Every structure is written in C-alpha cells, then in structure tokens.
Amino acid sequence: MIIGVPKEIKDKEGRVSLTPAGCKMLVKMGHKVIVEAGAGNISGFSDAEYQAAGAIMEESPAKIFSEADLILKVKEPLPPEYSLLKEGQVLFTYLHLAADKELTEVLLKKKIVGIAYETVELKDGSLPLLKPMSEIAGKMSVQIGARLLEKPFGGKGVLLGGVPGVAPGVVVIVGAGVVGTSAAKIAVGLGAEVYVLDINAERLRYLDDIFGGRVKTLISNEYNLEYAISKADLLIGGVLVPGYKAPRIVTEEMIKKMAPGSVVIDVAIDQGGCIETVDRVTTHSNPTFEKFGVIHYSVANIPGSVPRTSTLALTSATLPYLLEIVNKGWERAIRENQYLAKGVNTFDGKLTNKGVAEAHDMPYYPLVL
C-alpha cells in the first residue's frame, strides 16, 4: 500500500502522523511511504531520518495526495486540502465531524473512507487513540490557565497555588473523563482548590479515592454547576460524548457570574464545545477572546503546542491500527477488528457514525461490508 504523510497545515500544528521508526516498520513490510518534506521538523524528526527509514520525500502535497492509497494525518483536512482528496481514498486521522458539516459533506461527496482516531472504541468504552491527546490537553489546560490568570495576560492576577497566608486559586473542571482527570492531577499538584463535576457518581467516587479527598467532587447538575462556577478562577470544560457534538452544559448566565479576569478553557471545542459562551474556535496565534470580562481560550489543537511529546504519544497509539489497515487492507481490517470498525465515520458516500449524522440531521447508515 502507498501511505502518504502530508505536513500539517493547521495554525502552529507541529505534530506529525508518523515517526521515522514507524516509517521503517512499514517499509520493511513492503509498503511505500511518501512523506512531505519538513513534515516532522517541528516535532524534531528531520527529512534525513525519514529517508534513512526508507521514505520517499516529496515537496508537493498535491502529489502525495494523488499517489497515496491512504492519507495519514494528525488533524482533519482543512479547506485548502479538500480538492486534493481523491475519490475512494482512505483517510486515517482525527476528524471531529460532528462539529464540521462542510468537511463531512466533502468526505461524502468524494466517497472517502474516513476512519477517525477519536471514535475507535474498545469494549470498555475507552478511546485508545484519543486518550493520549486528551491526557496532554487536560494537563496543558491548567498550565495555560495558570498563565492566562497572570495580570500581563489579562487575568485577575491569581496564583493558583497561593502562598502561606493566602488562599489558593479555585479550579473547576466539568467532566471527569480523561481530560478532567489529567487536569485535576496538574491542578492538585500546583496546590489549587479543585472541584470536579460529572454526571457519573462512580467516576467521581474513583477520583475521590485516587486523590485522597484532595479534590472536591460534585454531581453535575444546574445547581451545582452554578455554585462551583461562581467560585472559579479557572474553569475547564472537558465533556465528551464519543462521536457526538458536545452538549452545551455551561450556560452564558453561569459565565456572567464569574469575576472579571477569570479564565475559561473549553477543551471540548474539537467537538463543538461544552461552554455556551465559546462561540468560536481560536488558534495558537490568536488563542483568546474576552466575553463578560472573562478570558476565553478555545484552541482546537492544544497538544500541537508540545509536538515532540504529542507526536510520540499519538503515533505509539495509532501505529498498531495503521499496521492492521495496510497489511490486511482496510475492509478486512475492520471486519476483523470491531473496535477499529467504530472508527469508520464515512464510507461510499454514506455517514456510518450515528452521532455525526444526528449532529447534521443527515441519514445514518450502519456500516455493512
């Protein structure tokens, strides 16, 4: 199979979808790997390393898309790449289609086999290809929030950890999944006062156990959300329903009750966001906006700012699934791996993910091969 690895074009996205180590493995198995020149530079992987691993280096992304049977990316295709996709091509990447109707329509029109990292789901409901990036985004959300709370960045001038004789800052995390748990680890480590809200009492019980009571847990409902958010210096949204558009559970009225200079970070923005006042996707170049005196951060590719760590974590997770696809062919691979099959969002011009179909009010077709 011919695997194409184009350079990511999203704003300041430094990750790359394949390391030289993965490339070498594919080439030894008899596959052809075409890598765009400079694709790995920001992650610390030189063109020379890819060449030594057997890759063919190519300057033109258009040529990569035209020659490849499978396009391997990190982030979803952006409008300049839409015309490069060819009919029937396999696309293996993060897609987040529930929040992007235009891309959904492009993939359907071109009959792309769209396999989304974020909807590959194991028997226990875990998302093995989303998890490493959720861990990074959760940890970074506190790191970013701590900086935005500093006065030079427009914040209220609060140190999350406080100092002796001065109360610490308050971090409120909505969602106790991978993002929320990872955020809580960093917030607790900084010495902040931490609240975590979720609808799952068992998950909250687990967090109470692992943090030894250091985190205050609350069942997520309107009353508790209003109570906790009104106290927050930093609010982190980490709600996820796999494949579906994120529910907007934090309302505008709740945000209005936050003190001026407080910070909101919506990590769920990839799936449309879970905070009502987050009405736009921001970028690493222009990451924040202010609403009701509150600083909002809604960058859709948070892990892209630590590309070395993120690339190594992501490719370690995706490579085993990629090997199944290229060695068996995608049809046999998904027939034999029910978890990988859940990653197929589009096929033969049809939407095969129920959450995406509902988000865009489009017909849903269960995957049949």
Rank of each mutant, 00 (worst) to 15 (best):
L204S: 07
T277E: 02
T318H: 07
I275A: 01
K245L: 13
E135K: 13
I249K: 09
P242F: 04
K110N: 11
G355M: 05
V306W: 09
L322W: 14
S83C: 12
S43F: 08
V172S: 12
T251Q: 06
N41W: 00
N345A: 08
I199Q: 11
D47W: 04
E135T: 14
V250R: 04
P20T: 13
H360Y: 12
L103N: 07
S83H: 14
A99F: 02
L235D: 00
G243F: 05
V5F: 02
D11C: 02
V74C: 12
T315L: 08
L322D: 03
P61A: 09
I269E: 00
G355Y: 01
E290S: 12
S305W: 10
G349V: 05
L322T: 07
P307H: 03
A52S: 13
E226Q: 09
E324Q: 15
F45K: 07
K12H: 11
L204Y: 03
K73R: 15
P20A: 13
P303E: 04
M29T: 12
H96W: 12
I275N: 04
G44F: 07
V74D: 09
M362V: 10
L159C: 10
A68E: 06
V264I: 15
T352N: 03
T311N: 09
S305Q: 15
E76N: 12
E252W: 08
K63G: 02
E193C: 11
K28F: 09
V106H: 01
T282E: 12
I229S: 11
I42S: 14
N327R: 13
P164D: 09
T282Q: 11
A201T: 14
V113R: 09
P20C: 13
M25I: 15
V250E: 02
E331M: 09
L323W: 11
V171S: 00
T119A: 03
A246H: 05
T283Y: 00
A232N: 10
A341R: 15
G177T: 05
